[in-house]
């Protein structure tokens, strides 16, 4: 339900929604909206109904206007990016686990540490799982880069994923461990599911953030064709 004060506000809100869907940059949306508001308010003052001016489909009007204005469009494509990131992460997680296990066994067989050397369990475990996590993140980023190579600004997105995912996944894992610790690490479906969900939500939210960052920064070319 609309709470806008005027028909002009309603139309501009509908147009802005369409421009967002099309991936029109914020600066361009603002400029297109300002110009359109001035036109519609002037027409309204002359006794013309703004809704009649734009026709029955303001979204189609907004789409046409964005096309004719030649504004840069960067559709977010969150769905395909999340799907590719998730798929790549799952495959890489399996590969990483097999790889880390294999390397661990190979090193144990090849090297015999002297008894004086004590490797803390947390360090060994941390190294193992950090290796698996690194392969998982790398696989996810690589998959997004390859599968969505034609998406605009995908290189920026994967660069930001590579930057943001390691600390975010580390934080999510820490949160999952804290959650498990609070419950005394029960091996119930609920506890394990919740821990997986915490890490997964952290991973996916960070991927969305990386994409959002890449399409909202540096791509704010002015809409040269605004009337």
């Amino acid at each position: 339900m609309s709470t806008s004060a005027s028909p002009v506000d309603d139309l501009l809100a509908a147009a802005d929604r369409q421009w967002r869907t099309l991936g029109v940059q914020r600066g361009d949306r603002l400029a297109l909206g300002t110009d359109l508001r001035a036109e519609l308010e002037a027409a309204q003052a002359d006794g013309l109904a703004p809704a009649e001016l734009l026709g029955a489909d303001p979204a189609a009007f907004a789409r046409r206007l964005a096309e004719e204005a030649g504004v840069e469009r960067l559709p977010p494509r969150y769905g395909p990016i999340l799907a590719a990131a998730f798929f790549g992460a799952v495959v890489a997680l399996i590969v990483g686990f097999v790889l880390a296990t294999g390397l661990h066994e190979a090193f144990v067989a090849a090297f015999d540490l002297p008894r004086s050397v004590h490797v803390p369990v947390w360090l060994a475990g941390g190294g193992f799982y950090a290796g698996v996590a690194a392969v998982t993140i790398a696989g996810s980023v690589f998959t997004v880069r390859v599968l969505l190579r034609d998406a605009p600004r995908i290189r920026h997105t994967t660069t930001r994923m590579a930057l943001l995912l390691p600390p975010a996944v580390a934080a999510a894992v820490a949160a999952a461990v804290a959650f498990g610790n609070a419950l005394d690490y029960p091996l119930t479906p609920f506890a394990i599911g919740a821990e997986v969900a915490i890490v997964l939500v952290g991973f996916l939210a960070t991927t969305v953030l990386a994409r959002r960052w890449s399409i909202t920064s540096g791509g704010t070319a002015e809409a040269g064709g605004r009337p």
Partner: peptide, 21 residues
């Protein structure tokens, strides 16, 4: 001819530098 057709077209003509406002 609707305003919804004319306004985007004017926008293009402005982008191309053919009209000023």
């Amino acid at each position: 001819v609707s305003y919804g057709t004319v306004y985007p077209l004017i926008t293009r003509l402005h982008r191309l530098g053919l009209v000023a406002n």
